[in-house]
């Protein structure tokens, strides 16, 4: 393990102000090391999505400190001038319903994240093709998302998340739309990615069938970490 890629210290998030203020996250501490796959569970309203949004830098924390890849991103104010660039270069996203752009085929959906970073399209497609092969969905490279099965679409989404070699991958219920077998395959892929690319992977999930696929499970309740448990696997 190369060191913590996600470091959350006393991170809080409060929505609203005064009597109507709602504290979604209260002084959460969390560290995710390179190569580690961490699960985030908890009942609805426990703060899982808020924590994911804060780490993704799409919502601003109220207090605490957030570091990505060893660099302080927020400590009372944003320390990174271009948050979209940060997301583009250092964070990969995997969504519950894959969120592939319906008007691009599989390979272009993957290559898009690279071309947004200014990479030449043919070079981007070459890397995208290699990733699709790595995720065993290379034969479906030219298929439109509507023609892909749920498992195939999620693999393409994983490829998109990986294409810029991010340090951190955030996944929001990536197996919710998959059956047990495919869910396990996706989780095994994520574990493989974490190991091969030394990425830190944080997964929000309710899916008990895949709890054993995480290096560590973090349980949230009422905006606080209730329990952290290392997997027996």
């Amino acid at each position: 393990m190369a060191g913590p890629l996600v470091q959350v210290e006393k991170l809080s998030k409060t929505f609203g102000a005064g009597e109507t203020a709602v504290r979604a996250l209260a002084e959460v501490d969390l560290v995710v090391e390179a190569g580690e796959v961490v699960g985030l569970k908890g009942p609805s309203g426990s703060g899982k999505s808020t924590l994911l949004n804060l780490i993704a830098c799409i919502q601003e924390p109220t207090a605490g400190r957030l570091s990505i890849g060893g660099e302080t991103v927020w400590d009372g104010q944003w320390r990174v001038p271009d948050l979209r660039r940060l997301r583009r270069e250092r964070i990969g996203f995997i969504f519950q319903s894959h969120n592939l752009l319906p008007f691009l085929n599989a390979i272009d959906n993957v290559a898009l994240a690279m071309t947004l970073d200014g990479v030449d399209r043919s070079a981007a497609r070459q890397r995208a093709g290699a990733l699709l092969d790595y995720l065993q969905v290379g034969k479906r490279a030219s298929a439109m998302p509507a023609r892909l099965s749920g498992g195939e679409a999620q693999r393409v989404a994983i490829a998109r998340a990986l294409v810029n070699r991010p340090q951190v991958i955030l996944a929001d219920e990536p197996t919710a739309a998959l059956d047990s077998e495919r869910a396990r395959v996706v989780m095994d892929l994520l574990r493989q990615v974490a190991r091969d690319q030394q990425a830190a992977i944080l997964v929000v999930t309710h899916d008990e069938k895949i709890f054993d696929r995480f290096d560590r499970m973090v349980a949230l309740r009422d905006g606080r970490i209730e329990q952290q448990q290392r997997s027996a696997a």
Binding site: R88, F93, L116
Partner: peptide
């Protein structure tokens, strides 16, 4: 709407 939100999330600049 969802596609634009996704583009923003994966880091597409406003110019895109």
């Amino acid at each position: 709407l969802r596609e634009i939100a996704t583009l923003k999330l994966i880091g597409a600049p406003d110019s895109t």
